[in-house]
C-alpha cells in the first residue's frame, strides 16, 4: 500500500529516512512531534534530525505543515490561542517545550525570515540591530560594527551604506527581504529558519537571495521552506518531503531528487503531484 493511502486511511507508517542522515551530527531533533490548532491536527508525529551546519529544505504541498513546523521550532505558535503540542523538539540538548525554558532566550538563538518581508517601520540601521537592541546592547560602536557585518553578510551593505538612517520601508521588496535576513543573522543564531524567503520576489532578487543563503550556510544551520524544486535542489544539502502533516521522506537532496525511495516523492519533485 502506498504511503498516501496509508495516510488517508489514518494508519501509521515509517517515513523513509535515508541512512546518510544518521551519520550527520544534528542540532535540532524532533521526535514524535504533533501539533494541534484547537481541534485540527496540523503535525502528526514528525520525527527528524536537522543536521548541524547544513542546509535542510522542507518541501511539500501547500498546507502540509511546513510553516507550522518552522514556527514550532522558535515557538512563535505560542502566540496563537489554542495551540497544543505533543512529543519533543530538542535544540542542542534542550527540550524546547519544557516548562522552565526561557522562550525569549530561545528565540534569540534562532533567526527567522518570513515569507513576506516584514521590515519594521524604523531606519535601516535600527532594523538590523533590533535583535541586539532588545538584548540590551546599546553601545554605538558595537551596534555599528554588527550592522555593517550583517549587512555585508546579507549582500546589502553597498546598496544601503549611505542611507542607513532612512526608513527601511523605502527599500525595494528584494532589498527588504535581504534586510530581514541581515536582521536574522545579526545576533549570530545557531539556526536560521527561512519560510519561503523568495516567494514574493522576482527571479533576479531570488537569485541574489539564493547566493546569499548559500554563503550563509557555510556558517549557520539553515532550515528552509520552499515550493521551488529547483531552489531546493540548488540550495540544500538535505531535503525533507512532508505531506498532510507527516514527514514522508528525508534524505540527501541529490538522492531525493534523483533516486527517491518513494514514488510519491518522485511524483512531487517532478511536479506530477501536489
Amino acid at each position: 500500500m502506498s504511503v498516501i493511502e496509508a495516510i488517508r486511511a489514518g494508519r501509521t507508517f515509517e517515513p523513509a529516512v535515508h541512512p546518510q542522515i544518521a551519520l550527520e551530527p544534528f542540532v535540532l531533533q524532533a521526535s514524535g512531534f504533533s501539533l494541534w490548532y484547537g481541534k485540527a491536527q496540523a503535525l502528526h508525529g514528525v520525527s527528524m534530525h536537522v543536521p548541524r551546519g547544513k542546509v535542510t529544505a522542507l518541501i511539500g504541498p501547500s498546507g502540509c505543515g511546513k510553516s507550522t513546523f518552522l514556527r514550532s521550532v522558535n515557538r512563535l505558535n505560542d502566540l496563537i490561542d489554542g495551540v497544543r503540542v505533543e512529543g519533543r523538539l530538542v535544540l542542542s540538548g534542550q527540550d524546547l517545550y519544557a516548562p522552565d525554558v526561557d522562550v525569549i532566550d530561545l528565540r534569540k538563538r534562532m533567526g527567522m525570515v518570513f515569507q513576506k518581508p516584514n521590515p519594521f517601520p524604523m531606519s535601516i540601521f535600527e532594523n538590523v540591530v533590533y535583535p541586539l537592541r532588545v538584548d540590551g546592547e546599546n553601545r554605538r560602536r558595537m551596534l555599528e560594527e554588527a550592522c555593517e557585518r550583517s549587512l555585508r553578510g546579507a549582500a546589502l551593505w553597498d546598496e544601503v551604506k549611505d542611507r542607513l538612517r532612512q526608513s527601511a520601508l523605502g527599500l525595494s521588496g528584494g532589498q527588504q527581504q535581504r534586510l530581514c535576513i541581515a536582521r536574522a543573522i545579526v545576533a549570530d543564531p545557531e539556526v536560521l529558519l527561512l519560510d519561503e524567503p523568495c516567494s514574493a520576489l522576482d527571479p533576479i532578487a531570488t537569485l541574489r537571495i539564493e547566493e546569499l543563503i548559500h554563503e550563509i550556510s557555510q556558517r549557520y544551520t539553515v532550515l528552509i521552506v520552499t515550493h521551488n524544486m529547483q531552489q531546493a535542489a540548488r540550495l540544500s544539502d538535505f531535503t525533507a518531503f512532508m505531506y498532510l502533516g507527516r514527514l514522508v521522506e528525508f534524505g540527501p537532496t541529490a538522492e531525493i531528487f534523483q533516486r527517491p525511495r518513494l514514488p510519491e516523492t518522485e511524483q512531487y519533485v517532478t511536479g506530477r503531484f501536489g
Binding site: 533567526g111 518570513f114 519594521f120 535583535p131 545576533a187
Partner: peptide, 11 residues
C-alpha cells in the same frame, strides 16, 4: 507580521 518579526528577533 511586524509583531511576529519582533518576537522572532527575541523581543
Amino acid at each position: 507580521s511586524a509583531r511576529e518579526g519582533s518576537y522572532g528577533c527575541g523581543a
